[in-house]
Amino acid sequence: MRELKQERAVRTRAIILKAAAEVFDELGFSGANIREITQRAGITQGAMYFHFGSKEELARAVMKAQPMTVLPHLATRGLQRLIDLTFVWAHRLREDVILRAGVRLTGEQNSFGMHDPTPYQDWAAVMSECLREARAAGELSDNVDIEVLADFVVSACTGMQMYSQISCERADLMDRVVAMWQHLLPALRAPGDVSPLDGSALRAAEVLREIAPQRLGAGQETRTAP
């Protein structure tokens, strides 16, 4: 019985998070309200406050959920995993409302009194782990500072998606990510490394084909909280 309650609580929390992301994505933090979020989630405000104490807490949860919209879809390791991560991120940013809302809230947070760099730092930590694996595998040049590079890629991706959003609602974001790796990858590889690292548009398309079945399964969810 206890396990069943815990399972229901996890499902309810996920439903609230998705509903909140939809509202934040459409209206931003300032335009969003708890009533709209609970109506979309199909729950009472009391149930919402049981899981999240405030709208600010909900916003933080959406911001921190960003990496988990990408990481479960990846099977590669090292430097290829980092490249693939940015490909999946660029694709899912256009179709995953939690990722999209998290990006919006992270960029707008100063406007509602938040100054939390944690979402960026979480991405940098994920990327640093990929780079440490790459170095252990002999893929990464000894001249590369792992922490500096991870922070740079996060910054580059942040800027690219903002530019792409303004230019064409992110329609060219994948092209921008591919261009980044075409310029970066030759400078990052260790001399003599012969691993089949690939940052091309063909690789991006291959990654998206690989994750398609996972996305299909993830989309089969209920809208009513138990």
Rank of each mutant, 00 (worst) to 15 (best):
72 P>E: 04
45 Q>I: 01
87 F>C: 11
207 V>N: 05
136 A>T: 01
221 E>T: 10
172 D>P: 05
188 L>G: 04
63 M>A: 03
118 T>F: 14
168 C>M: 05
65 A>C: 05
19 A>T: 03
83 I>P: 02
203 R>I: 05
81 R>W: 03
23 V>P: 04
105 L>P: 01
163 Y>P: 00
170 R>F: 00
30 S>H: 15
146 I>M: 07
106 T>F: 04
81 R>Q: 12
150 A>K: 07
15 I>S: 00
156 A>E: 02
152 F>P: 00
224 T>C: 08
1 M>I: 08
107 G>H: 10
56 E>Q: 12
168 C>H: 10
17 L>I: 03
117 P>V: 12
22 E>A: 10
210 E>F: 01
176 R>N: 11
2 R>T: 14
154 V>W: 05
145 D>H: 10
196 P>N: 02
60 R>D: 08
218 A>F: 05
56 E>N: 07
177 V>W: 06
213 P>T: 07
28 G>P: 00
216 L>K: 15
132 R>S: 12
64 K>L: 15
126 V>A: 11
180 M>R: 04
187 A>Q: 12
210 E>K: 03
47 A>L: 09
47 A>C: 00
115 H>Q: 13
78 G>T: 07
170 R>T: 08
25 D>S: 11
24 F>N: 02
150 A>T: 09
9 A>G: 08
24 F>Y: 11
118 T>E: 14
63 M>T: 02
223 R>A: 14
157 C>E: 04
141 S>D: 14
214 Q>G: 11
113 G>M: 09
33 N>Q: 03
129 E>G: 15
195 S>Q: 13
116 D>R: 04
60 R>Y: 01
111 S>T: 10
120 Y>E: 10
190 A>H: 13
20 A>Q: 03
75 A>D: 07
127 M>T: 02
220 Q>D: 01
67 P>L: 07
72 P>M: 05
67 P>G: 06
176 R>H: 12
153 V>H: 02
48 M>W: 08
205 A>G: 02
39 Q>H: 01
75 A>M: 07
94 R>M: 12
154 V>I: 06
142 D>R: 08
209 R>K: 14
75 A>Y: 09
134 A>Q: 08
172 D>S: 14
110 N>L: 11
225 A>S: 10
32 A>S: 15
173 L>Y: 05
173 L>Q: 11
88 V>D: 02
187 A>L: 13
147 E>F: 02
17 L>C: 09
174 M>E: 13
181 W>P: 07
84 D>N: 13
58 L>G: 01
176 R>D: 14
103 V>I: 15
1 M>P: 00
127 M>S: 00
97 V>T: 14
149 L>Q: 05
33 N>M: 08
63 M>W: 00
25 D>Y: 13
110 N>S: 13
134 A>F: 08
56 E>W: 11
95 E>G: 03
106 T>D: 06
67 P>R: 07
214 Q>C: 09
41 A>K: 03
81 R>V: 00
138 G>R: 15
23 V>E: 10
219 G>N: 11
138 G>W: 12
42 G>A: 09
60 R>N: 10
63 M>K: 03
191 P>F: 12
101 A>W: 01
117 P>L: 11
195 S>G: 10
199 G>N: 10
158 T>N: 15
127 M>E: 04
215 R>D: 14
111 S>Q: 13
